[in-house]
Design a protein around this nucleic acid. Sequence first.
DNA 1: GGGCATAGGGATAAATTTGTCCCTATCTGA
DNA 2: TCAGATAGGGACAAATTTATCCCTATGCCC
Lengths: 125, 125
Amino acid sequence: MYERKIAPNLNCGLDLIGEVLYGKWKIRLLWFIHIGHQRPSELQRKIPDASRRVLNVQLKELEDHELITRKVYPVVPPKVEYSLTEFGKTVIPVIAALGEWGDKNEERLRTVILRELEKPQLGEN
Amino acid sequence: MYERKIAPNLNCGLDLIGEVLYGKWKIRLLWFIHIGHQRPSELQRKIPDASRRVLNVQLKELEDHELITRKVYPVVPPKVEYSLTEFGKTVIPVIAALGEWGDKNEERLRTVILRELEKPQLGEN
DNA sequence: GGGCATAGGGATAAATTTGTCCCTATCTGA
DNA sequence: TCAGATAGGGACAAATTTATCCCTATGCCC
């Protein structure tokens, strides 16, 4: 496992929430679990751009940070279900606010984002 | 300048907002500009853990994404002031929600975050 | 002049995150 | 028996982000 060489900043609320939500797929994972997709294979199908490996890693971190719980059913084939903890549920409105802002401004965001992606080779000196 | 090799996902609002806010210092920059620290040197003093270089890069991206504007005063020594655009102002409540959640749960977050940092060498098998 | 503050950029290195590949294990169904 | 679904981990590579170092330029102050 990777071991940090630089300590994180934990000065303010923004630093703290960043430590637990910052991760390419974490917010999506929380959201999908929230709306009822609780099994790893389901989540992987919902987020096909993420590799299984990374989803597992990020799920583990969410679990370590007490935002979700992992319940293992002693059956074969294995069955695992993730659920939001009470603590995890409290962060859902914040994620919803993020998503709403993104949706509301979809067109504009798409424009400014794609503009940067499409002409990186033209210097603007 | 770094050129992406993998296209970003722009499927939903969460992807879109991620493209413009994802960056170690971006949220902090927006916040500090919001509360009145508008000059680069001021921002650098407010965020001493970030290198000047990276703050400049991230400010440039925020500007490209139309969240802030950069006003240059033709004086010597140089003077530059960043301001939120109208668009940028609309994201402030979302950032505030993030910060509030972090502040409200400060103690718990600090606990779970530090727990992971402090015993990475003890296997849990 | 020398040093500091202002603002910023290029080249490159380091840190961190994310992805790929391959392996384990069990039961079901063809 | 062999393939596929289930869940997951180790080793390693690639991508991406962030930091470091050094450079430019001007005016002020001592």
